[in-house]
Design a protein around this nucleic acid. Structure first.
Length: 465
RNA sequence: GGCGGAGUAGCCAAGUGGUAAGGCAAUGGUUUGCAAAACCGUCAUUCGAGGGUUCGAUUCCCUCCUCCGCCUCCA
């Protein structure tokens, strides 16, 4: 597949460096609360990315970390009166549950920062030995940006008016640590009183690792000094990924990530999502409004990953209808195929365009459009062609990670006796072609909060929500 | 202010130097006592505004307007 690369700003073909397995790393969540749909846009697109590679026959190694120590996890665990590990374990479990609902494939490896402190300390020691880092008097360690000429290549720092020297004066008064240059970033944070019990021993004294370091250390541990792709939300380009490049290339040599895949942020109702605006949605918030995680997933893949996606409740309703339409189309296609037919998956039949879209810079909305168009074409197919089309459709749905809703599962709701009696009465009136009375009775049912829909030989009662 | 991205029908949203995918909503018809459901249709002379290049631009260039992101630990 071809994918846009943030570093070179070009579309490039993806080929595993080692020729067999595509190895990639995704910056995972900081577990101090429930992830919101903006976080999940990134994780869902990374999931579609992986599924597309695998559907195309490429084996993958997917590593995604859990950030379980930083300012926020420490602060909020203290607020909650829990130990850091107890606190982050609970939110990690919640994250996993949400991921499963969204149909996200679990990463092959999911390392946590706290479990990799020795590796982080080792990396810092190497950076100091090579002259890329220095310890300050308080026991913190900083990366010396001036020691790495390549710094800023990913975010094009040299083209920005970010004068690393100049900003120092303006901000040094509020800086709590002692750095040579303000732009230098922290690798090891000396223990502070507010850290409570959350500190570890190091050659530089008690403290904890800086945020940027964990990814570099875990990448080295599981992917080595060179690997295929690194991914995250756009906000991580600077400084997080920039710092990772500096740390890893200086400590390990190697070229680090061969490709950078960044997902653009989600907008809600045309603007930034924020708690104060009341539009920061978690899966739970949306479930409370009656929307399933799969409907959320459909909306999230409904826009190209490099364009802003405007999330609205209206688009969620649209997703429900669209999924139902897809499910119906899939059922109709399946009905044309003899049960037991061996489904060929050599090509995608009428869904070839959809598959091509997915492989052309992960164009998920293009792929969805192609599926609906393909479904229309597939309606005219039969026999082996229909079987091949069905196979193609199934592969595509798997690549997108979409699980289609089952045929209208009738919910068994308790129907009050008076409602039931009224309905029976109306049904009899209707059978007697007494339309006037029939309509009056339906009006009464409506007032009780029930709608009555007539079928050929029976009727259905539905609670009006 | 610097850098980056975006403005396509009521909403979500693809796409292309050659005359606008798809989904939702809406709407017409068939059907149904009427509804609902289902099925079959319709639905952007136009792509933020104004210039330019071109036989031809929504697509390339310039200017302007609006929105969004990043600018030191936010996916």
């Amino acid at each position: 597949m071809r994918l846009f690369d943030t570093l070179t700003r070009t579309d490039r073909d993806l080929r595993p460096i080692d020729g067999t397995t595509f190895r990639f790393y995704c910056c995972g969540p900081t577990v101090y609360g429930p992830a919101h749909i903006g976080n999940f846009r990134t994780f869902v697109l990374q999931d579609v990315f992986r599924r597309t590679l695998e559907t195309g026959g490429t084996r993958t190694l997917h590593v995604r970390n859990i950030t379980d120590v930083d300012d926020k996890t420490i602060r909020d665990s203290q607020k909650a009166g829990k130990s850091l590990s107890e606190f982050t374990a609970a939110w990690t479990a919640k994250f996993h549950a949400d991921c499963e609902k969204l149909g996200l494939l679990p990463p092959h490896i999911e390392p946590g920062a706290v479990a990799h402190i020795p590796q982080q300390i080792d990396m810092i020691a190497r950076l100091i030995a090579k002259g890329h880092a220095y310890a300050s008097e308080d026991g913190s360690v900083y990366f010396k940006i001036s020691s790495f000429p390549g710094y800023g290549s990913l975010s094009r720092l040299d083209e920005r008016e970010l004068d690393l020297g100049k900003t120092q004066n303006a901000r040094s008064s509020s800086d709590e640590y002692e750095k040579d240059s303000l732009s230098d970033f922290v690798l090891w944070k000396a223990r502070r009183p507010e850290d409570g019990e959350n500190f570890w021993q190091s050659p530089w004294g008690e403290g904890r690792p800086g945020w940027h370091l964990e990814c570099s250390a875990m990448i080295e541990e599981y992917l080595g000094d060179s690997f295929d792709l690194h991914s995250g939300g756009v906000d991580l380009v600077f400084p997080h990924h920039e710092n990772e490049i500096a740390q890893s290339q200086c400590a390990c040599g190697g070229h680090f990530a061969a490709h950078w895949f960044h997902i653009t942020h989600l907008l809600v109702d045309g603007g930034k999502m924020s708690k104060s605006l009341g539009n920061l949605y978690t899966l739970e918030d949306l479930a409370a409004k009656g929307f399933s995680a799969m409907e959320v997933r459909y909306v999230l893949i409904g826009a190209h990953y490099r364009k802003p996606l405007n999330f609205t409740l209206e688009s969620l309703s649209g997703a429900r209808e669209a999924l139902a339409k897809l499910a119906k189309g899939a059922r109709q296609l399946a009905a044309k195929v003899e049960p037991g037919t061996l489904l060929s998956s050599a090509d995608f039949g009428p869904f070839q365009n959809a598959w091509n879209s997915l492989n052309n810079d992960l164009n998920t909305p293009g792929a969805l459009g192609g599926i609906f168009t393909g479904l229309r074409e597939a309606a005219h197919l039969s026999g082996a062609e229909a079987a091949a089309a069905l196979a193609g459709l199934n592969r595509l749905l798997r690549a997108l990670g979409l699980t289609l809703p089952e045929e209208a599962a009738v919910e068994s709701v308790e129907i009050p006796a008076d409602v039931h009696a009224l309905a029976e009465k109306r049904w009899q009136a209707r059978l007697a072609k007494n339309w006037a009375e029939s309509d009056v009775l339906r009006g009464q049912l409506t007032e009780l909060g029930w709608s009555m829909k007539d079928g050929k030989d029976s009727y259905a009662l539905e609670k009006i929500s």
